[in-house]
Computed example of a mutant assay.
Amino acid sequence: MGVPEDVLTTEQRLAVREIVEACLHGRYPTKEDFSELKMIVAEVAQAQARTEKRVEQLAEAQKDLARAQKRTEKAVQDLARQVGGLSENLGGNLEDLSYQMVS
């Protein structure tokens, strides 16, 4: 499983690749290699924390949107009832008027 492209910088990817390839060729990592890896891991952890915070913010925004959607749906239902009432009243008035004209 690889690391997504946007998690590590190009420089970090090259450093990790270099260390892994060295290990594969029998060269053991040095203190400097481990220090560099520790820095990279710390940066990835910070990026993960920022990502988690953004996900939480997005989840809250989604909840707010859901509440707003429910209010909008209720307002549309109320409006539909009012328009239906107006239509019935207007229709009744037109029927009365036409009856009077015909009579």
Rank of each mutant, 00 (worst) to 15 (best):
E88D: 15
V102A: 10
L24Y: 03
R81S: 14
L14S: 11
K74S: 10
A47Q: 05
A49Q: 08
T9S: 15
E21Q: 08
V76H: 12
L8R: 03
E56A: 12
I40F: 09
L14M: 15
L37Y: 02
G2A: 12
R13V: 06
V76I: 15
N93H: 06
V55Q: 05
L65Y: 03
A15K: 06
A61Y: 04
V102M: 09
R17Y: 09
V102T: 05
E56T: 02
E73D: 11
L90W: 08
K31Q: 13
V7Q: 07
D78W: 03
G84M: 02
V83S: 14
R71C: 09
Q69H: 14
V7M: 13
R81H: 13
G85I: 00
L58R: 05
L8F: 08
T72R: 14
L24Q: 10
L65I: 01
Q100I: 00
M39H: 06
Y99D: 15
A15S: 12
A80H: 04
Q12V: 02
Q82N: 11
A49T: 04
E56H: 08
E32G: 12
R13Y: 12
Q12P: 02
S103K: 07
L90H: 05
F34P: 01
K53D: 14
L94R: 02
K53A: 15
T30A: 14
A22L: 02
K38R: 11
G26I: 02
V7E: 07
S98M: 15
M39S: 12
R17D: 12
D6G: 03
T10S: 10
Q100L: 12
V3M: 14
A61T: 00
C23F: 04
H25D: 12
E32H: 10
S87P: 00
Q48P: 00
Q48W: 01
G2V: 04
N89M: 11
K53Q: 10
L86I: 12
S35E: 10
E52H: 06
A49I: 02
Y99H: 13
V3L: 15
L58Y: 07
K70L: 15
Q46H: 09
R17K: 11
R17S: 13
N89V: 05
D64V: 00
Q69P: 03
T51D: 11
V20A: 09
T9V: 06
A47F: 01
E18I: 00
R67I: 04
E18W: 01
D6K: 07
T9F: 03
D64W: 01
A68S: 14
V16T: 06
T9Y: 05
R71P: 00
A22Q: 04
K53L: 14
E21G: 05
S87Y: 06
V16C: 15
K74Y: 11
E18D: 14
P4C: 07
V55E: 11
C23N: 04
Q62K: 08
E21R: 10
D33C: 07
S35D: 12
A22K: 08
L97Y: 11
A75E: 14
E18M: 11
P4A: 10
E60P: 01
G92S: 15
M101N: 06
R27K: 11
E95P: 00
V41E: 07
S98C: 11
A68Y: 03
G2C: 07
E95R: 01
V83L: 15
G26Y: 02
L8S: 02
Q12C: 05
D33V: 03
A75M: 06
